[in-house]
């Protein structure tokens, strides 16, 4: 009998390892930025051309940085949740509009002048927000995706929870699910709001 117990045990260990492997999403790469200060940037606001925003402006608040684009289908799936969340006055959400024009495969952005790209970006992003609702305190424009690289963005939507000192405390890769909001983001945000 004992003869069979050892292979059985080994087999069960293997099954456990395989089960863990199968249930992990390989597209969710843990971000090295969690626990580090949110990278600084200065980008133009969507609603107020010429005016800029920096993460330092949010010092002292717990806030979300949500990376979005109008061409991003998962963003549309996530959007109603963000709109509902902002109506409840949960947390300030800053939108990082990521490569609005360049990210859209249907447009050859290389043929556009910077000014044309900026106005097309504003037009597309603004239209999308008026159609689907605007949950953002403000949105900023990352037209070439440089800021996205600093934040390690590799698949929109992505959302960062940033604490009062400007440190990234959590990163959601892919759309925020009601489950992730209730079980991870909100409890952590409450805890962070209590920190001085």
């Amino acid at each position: 009998m004992k003869r069979f117990l050892i292979p059985l045990g080994l087999f069960l260990v293997l099954v456990v390892f395989l089960a863990i492997g199968l249930n992990r999403d390989p597209h969710e790469v843990p971000s090295p930025l969690v626990g580090k200060p949110a990278p600084a940037f200065t980008l133009e606001k969507l609603a107020e051309p010429g005016k800029t925003f920096s993460p330092a402006d949010m010092q002292g608040q717990v806030w979300l940085l949500n990376v979005w684009a109008s061409w991003c289908v998962s963003c549309r799936a996530e959007h109603p949740l963000l709109v509902a969340f902002s109506r409840q006055g949960g947390l300030p959400i800053v939108g990082l509009n990521y490569k609005e024009v360049r990210g859209d495969g249907g447009i050859d952005a290389k043929k556009l002048s910077p000014a044309d790209e900026a106005s097309l970006t504003r037009q597309r992003a603004g239209a999308w927000l008026s159609q689907h609702g605007d949950p953002y305190t403000l949105s900023v424009l990352d037209m070439d995706g440089r800021v996205g690289i600093d934040y390690g963005v590799y698949g929109v939507p992505e959302t960062y929870l940033i604490d009062k000192k400007g440190v990234i405390r959590f990163k959601q890769i892919g759309p925020i699910t009601p489950d992730a909001l209730e079980k991870k983001i909100l409890p952590l945000a409450r805890q962070l709001a209590a920190e001085s």
């Binding site: 790469v29 090295p32 690289i149 390690g152």
Partner: peptide, 8 residues
């Protein structure tokens, strides 16, 4: 790149 995207 590791600082942004991790060892992956």
């Amino acid at each position: 790149l590791v600082a942004r995207y991790g060892d992956f």
